[in-house]
Amino acid sequence: MKYELWKTGSSVLATFGLYSVLYRENKFYRFFEHIFLGLAAGWTLVVIWVEIEKDQWWGKMLGANNDAGTSMVQSGYWLYAFLVPIGVMGYFVFSKKHNWISKIPIGIVLGLYAGQQFQAWLQRYGPQISTSLKPILPTTFTSITVPDNPVPGEVYFTQALTNAISLFTLLSVVAYFLFSFNENNKLLNRLSTSGRWLLMIGFGAIFGTTVTMRFTLLIDRMHFVWIDFVRDMLLRR
């Protein structure tokens, strides 16, 4: 309990230290800001070894890992040693003369990323495109709106209207993105203008949810300060 009190107490102090920037930038804030950056950088270094290089590189190179699912010890793959010079090349970014060498490992990583994007694009957007293409003409007029027990497969008037609005919104927004430069085609210009307005609806939704997220994070901090620390630790001791 003593440790928890000390730990939570200093966390609360650090929280207020960081919040002091709301008044203006000050030494108290900068002190905690630098502690934060130092701890984050230190932990990253720990993680690089513990979570990545130890098992994925060192273990595989020296044969210290078990083979997947067996208790058999793998042979060492000495070729993994070649990755050290490749990693070192990245550090040439600090050299004025040989700066270009750092582009080799960065090029490898970026190249591997770029190569994946073609397949990734199709997997991500393929279903999105097919979902967007819904019938925009009604197939029945027995009811204007969708009844309580709709006939499967039938498209009712209001359904078709909603689908048409959806498709128009999508096409307008995409047109705004693709033809936002000065285009002489009047139709495209109007589509692009309506796209800008409809885009605002999307941004409005994103803004609304962003606000709720940021407020939730603040509420969480206040819960930590008032409930976890003040009420549960200080007042109930």
Binding site: P127, Q128, S130, T131, G202, A205, I206, T209, T210, T212, M213, T216
Partner: peptide, 16 residues
């Protein structure tokens, strides 16, 4: 998180 919920709503409605 709330910030990425609107975008993920699209993936939900497309069945992904």
């Amino acid at each position: 998180t709330g910030i990425s919920a609107p975008q993920n709503f699209n993936y939900y409605s497309s069945g992904q």
